[in-house]
């Protein structure tokens, strides 16, 4: 019999809101992970310019001193803070910490693993990232 696999593929990661805050955190984790990977590659490229002499290094540094450069660095700060804070939550959860205890499920079923502690940690990670970005903006654009 002919079949179509019907897998969602990468577009399944989009529209995270339909599955709640934990799926939003999963999506942000992926997005910030990829963003940090791109930054890491760009950073290696940037710092490697020093092998071409002081002038090349200064020219590359000037790129980060522009308004666009500051905005990109601010986004990187936000990605880094969220990825770190949420990563700690996920690592603890994946070790079975804070996911609740098995028990007799009663209607209406509320999954113990998606508890308020985790939701609070996700919101705190987003909040910390926002604060760090605001601090970054103040430092980079401040006097």
């Amino acid at each position: 019999m002919e079949r179509q696999s019907n897998r969602e593929g990468i577009k399944g990661w989009l529209n995270p809101g339909r599955y709640g805050l934990e799926r939003v955190a999963y999506w942000l984790m992926r997005l910030t992970g990829l963003g940090l990977l791109v930054y890491f590659i760009a950073h290696v490229f940037e710092t490697s310019s020093i092998v071409n002499g002081k002038e090349a290094w200064q020219k590359m540094l000037e790129l980060t001193q522009t308004t666009e450069g500051h905005i990109i660095l601010t986004i990187v700060i936000g990605m880094c803070v969220f990825h770190t804070a949420n990563g700690i939550r996920v690592m603890l959860g994946q070790g079975g910490v804070g996911v609740g205890k098995p028990g007799r499920p009663d209607y209406p079923y509320k999954p113990a693993s998606l508890n308020s502690r985790h939701k609070l940690c996700i919101l705190a990670s987003i909040g910390l990232a926002a604060l760090a970005m605001m601090y970054g903006l103040a430092v980079l654009f401040g006097e």
Binding site: Y19, E22, Y26, M29, Q94, G100, P105, K110, L114
Partner: peptide, 15 residues
């Protein structure tokens, strides 16, 4: 990766 969507949609509270 602990996205939790499985538990979100489970109709029997399996988690």
């Amino acid at each position: 990766h602990f996205a939790g969507s499985c538990s979100q949609v489970c109709p029997k509270g399996v988690d």
